[in-house]
Design a protein around this nucleic acid. Structure first.
Lengths: 255, 255
DNA sequence: AACCTCGGTCGGCATTGTCGAACGGCAGTC
DNA sequence: GACTGCCGTTCGACAATGCCGACCGAGGTT
């Protein structure tokens, strides 16, 4: 038995499917999306429902994610070492920079936000811990790509989505950008995901120097960048100091 | 095949086990805790790891929850109708009451917090969305029990944990309290979970009038209660108004 | 250096999940 | 109001599948 357990893989695929489509899904949709017989999909869904990973709308019979997942997700945050060691540094970085701070780690070809400190003013902001950002259009993602925390190949093969006219979509552009990130030790994103917004990020290394995540600050482009459209040197300095401090906490010898 | 899928149930049990023990668990511990052969547990863990539901510490070989669960958990929040319809009312309630507001729904003999609005001052508070509260010692839990949103039996059979000297642990006490909650339409908890803290809660009803959740405000006992140790009538009024408004939004005819 | 513990692997067996067809309820339609 | 899709659910037979328990090798400990 070298292979993975089939039914569990299928269950996970169903959960991801339900997480992706933001609306409730019917049994038929689930079965055909995954190429399963209706009976099979029903058995798995029934089990997932039984363990509260999935809920069923009693009226329509359609399925959606269940409450138990919320608790598991927050439990993950509790045990995540990268996050727990970063919290204090992230708070300090937000205070020093005056901007929102995010921590990301690679997940399934995207960046999972595992910590988020609001910009220290009283404006209304939404917590996006648990959100997935694109690799090629976020500063966190570009840093993770540059330092090999997640494979680049899929992005080079078929052209990724362009969110704005500044998004790097050509393999050549992306490769050059990643090279520069490797060279300087930090990465930026200026209006590549959303016009008017920019961010910079730096890698976080674990034991052995492997890059396990990234930390970044982001905000309005006129605050992050100088008049020439380049990230403020002062911000880069405090960001890199925070990244180094966290890496040290995690056991990365010296970087 | 009427029964649930065995391997998926086991996988879910492993995930819950990992979520419970806050430290990383070894293969042997997992296997023996669930009464499985090591090989079996390993196969399931390998699969869970493959779908990012579980991570393995490369150094020690021990297992912990994986990143994909965080995204699934927040995706649950996105589709949860009770939560999305409550957010505005919860904000307003926090503003009117000046206290922290929480929304809960039953999960596995506990109360799952699905929304949390901080007390509207600038003190440091930790977000406990995703946390599990006890049924018998929280205002949210007592309301859910009183209105049949979750079975009472397990608490009456063996005596639940006493967090403080005010915690209701005797079946008789609990039953009387639940009866009063049913009668008045709201419930309170005064220093039953933590000394100096109190909370009040009211039920939220969905279509058909079934209680699907509860909303509550909580804070220091001297702000929640009057000098006689009884909840402030003004707070109860605004709380019940919010609960009724949300119930109406959810399609409960009139309550 | 021998021991012990722990995570991982392997092969045989039968338990287990899968499949496809048939059922029953619901809603929209003619 | 009968008809007709559609959809979630049930059922039984088959064999593929995952389960078990013994075995392996590495790391740490005594």
């Amino acid at each position: 038995m070298a292979g993975p357990v089939q039914s569990i893989e299928r269950a996970a695929a169903i959960l991801r499917l339900l997480a992706g489509g933001s609306r409730r899904l019917g049994l038929g949709e689930v079965a055909s999306s995954l190429g399963l017989a209706k009976g099979t999909a029903h058995g798995i869904l029934r089990t997932l429902q039984h363990v509260d990973f999935v809920e069923q709308d009693p009226a329509t019979g359609k399925y959606q994610l269940g409450a138990a997942l919320l608790h598991l997700g927050t439990s993950y945050l509790d045990v995540n070492e990268l996050r727990s060691r970063s919290i204090n540094w992230a708070d300090a970085l937000a205070a020093r920079s005056g901007e929102a701070v995010r921590l990301g780690t690679p997940l399934e070809g995207r960046v999972l936000v595992i910590h988020h400190v609001f910009r220290p003013d009283d404006t209304l902001q939404t917590l996006d811990v648990g959100a997935l950002l694109p690799l090629h259009a976020s500063s966190l993602g570009k840093v993770l790509l540059a330092f090999g925390a997640t494979p680049v190949d899929p992005l080079l093969e078929d052209e990724p989505e362009a969110y704005t006219r500044h998004t790097l979509v050509h393999p050549e552009q992306l490769n050059r950008a990643l090279g520069e990130i490797r060279e300087f030790g930090w990465g930026a994103e200026v209006q590549e995901m959303s016009m008017g917004e920019a961010g910079i990020a730096a890698p976080i290394r674990g034991q052995g120097g492997l890059v396990v995540g990234a930390i970044g600050v982001s905000g309005a482009v006129e605050r992050i960048c100088d008049t020439k459209g380049r990230p403020q040197p002062a911000l880069i300095t405090v960001l890199r100091e925070a990244a180094r401090a966290i890496s040290r906490d995690l056991g990365a010898a010296r970087w």
